[in-house]
Design a protein around this nucleic acid. Sequence first.
DNA 1: TATTGTTATACTCTATAACTATA
DNA 2: TATAGTTATAGAGTATAACAATA
Lengths: 152, 152
Amino acid sequence: MNGSPPIGSAFLLAQLGAHATRRFAERVEELGLSPAQTGLLRVIARRPGESQQALAAELGTPATRLVALVDGLERRGLIERRRNPQDRRLYAVFLSDQGEEMMRTLAKIGAAHEDELMAALSAEERTVLRGLLARIAAEHGLAPGIHPGYRG
Amino acid sequence: MNGSPPIGSAFLLAQLGAHATRRFAERVEELGLSPAQTGLLRVIARRPGESQQALAAELGTPATRLVALVDGLERRGLIERRRNPQDRRLYAVFLSDQGEEMMRTLAKIGAAHEDELMAALSAEERTVLRGLLARIAAEHGLAPGIHPGYRG
DNA sequence: TATTGTTATACTCTATAACTATA
DNA sequence: TATAGTTATAGAGTATAACAATA
């Protein structure tokens, strides 16, 4: 007999989520990127030319934190800040050619990451799991592709 | 047509894991506890009387961090340090009566947390999900009940 | 006067290393 | 000399608030 209570899905999600995050961080660190930077890169790729305020609002993060993230990506040559001539307070943020190339690399890394994490499951089981997780995420109002870690 | 790549299970796990962790932290904060403290409490309940070194090893955390966690639990009156008479360098750590009571409260909170998180799924679907997650966790060598967040 | 972006400051968390007491 | 536990210190990451430029 085992006196411990059964481990629930909530704990398993927290445990596996932390594990997945850590492994992903290790992978992108080899590219000199943090997970937060890769998430921002994805948002910029999806909606090029947005202001930093708009990006901060979309990620749900304070503007001050976004500045640091954009600084890092700009130093790496992955994005460009362009002044908006109509309203010179705003920057419009775009991916550079290097940034586009990095997005392709990140897609490959993401696929490898997914494969490694799901190694225990068959193709059918992976489909079932993805469906269940997506429904839970939707029910809790989690925006697709936006990690809650940006929120303070 | 949607040009974005489909969101994989790895990202969903990271996203939902962070969400689950945040919600749990909010719940236990009302008891004056951090998630890390509740995890330590569980380990102490399962194996009473261990030394702090043994506890640190089991959680995979530096001894220096464990001291702070134990200090907090002792200040709250939830655990007791007792000197080992045979080797007076060691402490043996036990739950107090208040600590036992807190474990019962935490069990209730955990059940409510699980219910809230899994609200979108039927009982059968929850069983399927838990089975898939447990297999993934086992395949990656994650110890049952030990959150990777203790590891630096 | 309001808004965009930035910088300055403080706070929290964690790890590394130095210290004490026992063995 | 080695080990259990503790304290001191420093570093990373983040948020709050003050600031400069533009509207």
